[in-house]
């Protein structure tokens, strides 16, 4: 299958929502509409929402942005969403998407690409590892917030 990567269009959202819902078990149309409003401008230099198309259909997506001086880090490209339709995985679509967004980040002048994901998400973790990503010098932390008394 020949795959092209391009900027997202409003018409692509239903396919993006379906790919995400199949992977996560939860359809989030309102969330994806808000992501589109924030990241769907093809002229923005720092925010990117790209889709991979094969045989006339959207088969994958990637979303990310350049973040400046977050936690003291020099500007870096941050990928916070990537997925590929299950039936076309292992065909290089994810690699094409990551390459495409990395190219945008390089064009914006950043030298690092980062992401964060659940440690039990072995599928996507293995994908990022296969692309050469290594542990970053950061540790994610969290705490439970008790309800106010």
């Amino acid at each position: 299958m020949k795959v092209d990567v391009r900027d997202v269009r409003r018409d692509d959202l239903h396919a993006v929502i379906a790919i995400d819902a199949a992977a996560t078990g939860l359809a989030k149309p309102a969330y994806w509409r808000s992501v589109f409003r924030r990241y769907g401008d093809p002229d923005a230099r720092a925010r990117h929402f790209l889709v991979a198309c094969g045989d006339g259909e959207v088969v994958g997506f990637v979303v990310g942005e350049v973040r400046d001086w977050e936690f003291g880090s020099p500007p870096c490209g941050w990928v916070f969403g990537i997925d590929v339709r299950a039936d076309v995985r292992e065909g290089g679509v994810g690699s094409r998407l990551l390459e495409a967004i990395a190219k945008r980040f390089r064009r914006a002048g950043v030298k690092k690409l980062r992401t964060m994901l659940a440690r039990d998400n072995t599928l996507i973790l293995s994908f990022f590892r296969s692309q050469g990503m290594m542990a970053a010098p950061f540790i994610p932390l969290e705490m439970d917030l008790q309800a106010a008394e």
Binding site: R119, T122, L125, S126, F128, R129, S130, G132
Partner: peptide
Amino acid sequence: EMAKATFRSITLATLLR
């Protein structure tokens, strides 16, 4: 848990690369 997640995410092909 971090160590296990790391070992689970690295295939032989990734290690060779």
